[in-house]
Simulated assay, not measured.
Amino acid sequence: MLFDWFLTRQESRGVRGDLLEIGVYMGKSAIFLGHHLRDGEDYTVCDLFEDEAPDGANKAESNKSYPTLTKQVFERNYLSFHDALPRVLRGPSSLVPDEVPPKSCRFVHVDASHLYEHVYGDIGAARDALLPEGVVVLDDFRSEHTPGVSIAAWEAVLNRGLRPICLSTQKLYGTWDDPAPVQEELLAMVRGRDDCHLSVQEAAGHRIIRVKSKKGMPAPAFPPSRHHRAPEPAARTAPQSPAAGSRRPPAASSRARRIAADLLPPVVTRAVRRGRAR
């Protein structure tokens, strides 16, 4: 819900700029981002895919968490929803600063390595690429298996000028601009809904807005794949009358009487029968 809200808000306000995703995995968020790309904007994605990792720790992480990720798989998934691919950088995320112009992006999604050193660099690349009103989204900032992301994210808040806009269950939305205007719009939007929880806290001089969906909250509409085929409506069949000579099934009341006769004490059964006979 928040991912879509931030992108739609930018577009409704006429904010223009490129899109960047660092770490694409199988392409779900990349596909969603691609539907917000407008004429005149560029869209770049970067992932290691099946290339050699730049260090041993990153190689171990890739082999464990992303053994089936290939550029071909990502591109096939993406082209199931779009006519053309984004610009694909195949390699470590350290490529981004040299390939994406400074202050060119309105929205950056970071979901690559979970190792602190790499996340630190990805946050720096996002800061350099973003326009003044741009938004960065850091994925997995609070998962128990990704402490490197947590440390790098909150270090950026405390020491590198990142201003939190809000937190969801898994993502931190932030900016290097003044977060107050977008926070006020966000608060008004969330307070007008009844399908999500909202809390506001102060920490280290930052206003922290937490948003969490309630059970049953619908997910944002995801455009159907070009391979999707809507199910055909089931053919309506006329009710069939019982064949001649066939016996109709006993009525529910008859079955109930037989069950009562089997289960109730005889004295109760006789009393019920006498009452019906009156």
Rank of each mutant, 00 (worst) to 15 (best):
M1D: 13
F3Q: 01
F3N: 06
F6K: 01
R13I: 00
V15Q: 12
R16N: 08
V24T: 13
I31L: 08
F32Y: 08
L37D: 03
T44M: 08
C46Y: 06
A53P: 08
P54R: 03
G56D: 14
A57W: 04
N63Y: 13
T68S: 13
Q72N: 14
F74I: 04
N77I: 04
N77G: 11
S80W: 08
S80F: 08
F81Y: 15
L85M: 14
P86E: 02
V88A: 02
L89F: 14
S93T: 14
L95T: 05
L95D: 12
P101S: 06
K103V: 13
S104C: 11
C105K: 01
A112V: 00
S113G: 07
D122Q: 06
G124N: 07
A129V: 07
A129P: 14
P132N: 10
V135F: 10
L138T: 01
L138Q: 04
L138S: 04
D139N: 15
F141N: 01
H145R: 11
P147D: 09
P147F: 09
A153L: 07
E155W: 07
L167D: 00
L167V: 02
L167S: 01
L167Q: 04
Q170M: 05
L172C: 02
R191S: 13
D195N: 13
D195F: 09
C196I: 00
C196N: 00
A203L: 11
G205F: 04
R210V: 10
V211D: 09
S213L: 12
K215T: 07
A219D: 08
A221W: 05
A221H: 10
F222S: 03
A230H: 05
R236L: 13
T237K: 14
T237R: 15
A244K: 09
A251W: 08
I259S: 06
P265A: 09
P265S: 03
T269H: 06
R270C: 00
R270P: 00
A277D: 12
